[in-house]
Amino acid sequence: MNKNIDLNNLQNEGVENVPMQERRDFLKMGLAITGIFAGGSLFSAVSTFNSAHASDFAKKYPYKPHYSMVMQQHRCIDCERCMDACVATNHVPNVHGAYRTTILEKETPDAVGGKREFIPILCNQCNLPQCTRVCPTKATYKDKTTGIVLMDIKKCIGCLTCQEGCPYNARYFNEEKKAVDKCNFCWDTRLSKGEKDTACAHACPADVRIFGDLSNQEDRVFKIVHQIEKAVWVLRPEAGTRPNVFYTKG
């Protein structure tokens, strides 16, 4: 009985002091150490399935640069500067349901220390996009050189099948443009003009949104996606779209 009470009241002593060998042994079992207890004799661990998965399909980077974004989810404070910057940069209309990126809020009452998490979302610029497959007129397409999923608005018939196909709710019909609109990593407004990042990443005060090149081993995005200390995951991996937006925390 006594032992049980002790277990319930254990304090996480932090993972900073876990030896690298220990971590690697756990990783081989498909587990990442999330905490140590009782003077380092007890470990808590989570499955690294998602991160293993993420780096598996990140193996192929057919584009140069291979644009990608990593969200340091734990750092997001929903100040929404990213959303404001996106609206201003990309002329997103001020109507309900019109946005290229937004922030979702998750309540985590049971989590140690946190009451809530904010989860920024945007187009995942998938390697296997559903939206481009279902579009009848190739109005939306994956650009051959940049890998960004773009819109050719004159071809959009407004059937909204791409909205149904997208597992990320990344698309909306823009009444002003008379076409479906979506995040294009600020291709027309910034990247093609020589800027190195997107408006949202640029505006983020908390270093949540890290924009970069997955095909470059020196790039921060590459390093975060390929490290083994922290779990890295993608949203809705079961949809099989091979997204290029990754999430991490801790």
Binding site: C76, D78, E80, G97, I103, E105, G114, K115, F118, A206
Partner: peptide, 28 residues
């Protein structure tokens, strides 16, 4: 520098505290 979202309730939390309906994507 830890537990950011404990104090940072964000635009959504602020709207909720003020009794606004923002942060609800539904209710169209």
């Amino acid at each position: 520098n830890t537990r950011c979202a404990t104090c940072h309730i964000g635009v959504k939390g602020d709207a909720r505290a003020k009794g606004g309906a923002k942060g609800e994507a539904k209710g169209h």
